[in-house]
């Protein structure tokens, strides 16, 4: 029974990390650069949702505001939109001026943005842990001994919809095909008349919308503080690298692996041991498969 409960929680946690990792991969693929502010953007997404909750409850009629469920449902799309807008600004400020620079320069500019976010939000909202409203009310239901909270299901459901939607966008639509082409060879894509800069801006908007969703959902389930970004960043980075640099599916798989260690392995050993084991296993796998854990066999370095 406990194993099943662990599995349910592990899936929800993995899905949440997956949302975090996916936003990170989007910017990575579009720009070739590590967006080190992504963890902080997830955190910021949580605080945007908190700020929006205040705004929504004051605008909405009392019967909706009081109900709770409606706030959560309205909150998700509004957070996505606000965060997407912030994504365009982020792109314009921290990426566009540096688009011809080596990726590590962009890496540093995103570090600076992360500093602004975590410290600015700390100054504005204070350091206390905060929570966002649940998507569909705060209840839970039981199946025998198994307890499943509505929020766990919301996280899983939202993650499946968003991850699936992203997959559909990237693989089935013209925009997605162009985005992939631009990611693979921006020069060639430009030559073919694809407006690469515009697609990169779209990637940033999508990435931050995903960060907003992740922040909203994570902050309700696990709370959030202005200094939460660092740990989330580390997890996203690990997930994406485990999953094969740049692969969407791999990132989700990597996120699930991390959640498996945090929940499954930790329940059998202890949290510090599980964390140590995760790194040792990564080390061992990289030693055996230098091309990445799930990474496709890339040919010769030439």
């Amino acid at each position: 029974m406990a194993a099943l409960q662990l599995l349910v929680n592990g899936l929800a946690l993995g899905a949440a990390y997956g949302l975090v990792a996916l936003g990170f991969v989007l910017v990575l693929n579009a720009t070739g650069a590590v967006n080190f502010a992504h963890g902080d953007w997830v955190m910021a997404g949580g605080f945007v949702a908190i700020a929006l909750t205040g705004a929504l409850t004051s605008i909405l009629p009392v019967e909706f505001a009081g109900g709770g469920a409606w706030v959560g449902l309205l909150l998700l799309p509004t957070t996505l939109v606000v965060m997407a807008g912030l994504g365009l600004i982020f792109c314009r400020v921290a990426y566009t001026p540096l688009k011809n620079q080596p990726p590590v320069t962009i890496f540093v500019s995103t570090i600076a943005v992360g500093l602004i976010l975590s410290n600015g939000i700390n100054a504005q909202f204070g350091g206390a842990p905060r929570s966002t409203p649940p998507l569909f009310g705060a209840g839970q239901f039981s199946l025998g001994d198994l307890v499943i909270s509505h929020q766990s299901l919301s996280i899983l459901g939202t993650a499946i919809i968003l991850i699936g939607g992203l997959g559909w966008l990237m693989e089935r639509t013209q925009t997605g095909r162009r985005m992939r082409a631009a990611a693979q060879d921006p020069e060639m894509a430009r030559a073919m008349g694809i407006r690469v800069d515009r697609l990169i801006a779209v990637s940033f908007a999508l990435a931050l919308a995903l960060a907003g969703a992740a922040g909203l959902l994570l902050a309700n389930q696990f709370f959030i503080t202005p200094s939460s970004g660092g740990a989330l960043m580390l997890k996203a980075y690990l997930a994406v690298t485990i999953g094969g640099w740049g692969s969407l599916r791999g990132a989700v798989a990597g996120a699930m692996l991390i959640a498996f260690f945090e929940i499954g392995v930790a329940s059998l050993t202890s949290q510090p041991v599980a964390e140590g084991l995760l790194y040792l296993v990564l080390f061992a796998i990289l030693f055996a498969r230098p091309q990445g854990v799930f990474g496709e066999a890339i040919g010769h370095r030439a």
Binding site: A2, Q5, L6, N9, G10, L13, A16, L218, Q221, F222, E262, I263, G264, A266, S267, S270, Q271, A274
Partner: peptide, 9 residues
């Protein structure tokens, strides 16, 4: 650590 379930179990 986000999920406290392992230690609770």
């Amino acid at each position: 650590v986000n999920d406290m379930l392992p230690v609770l179990i």
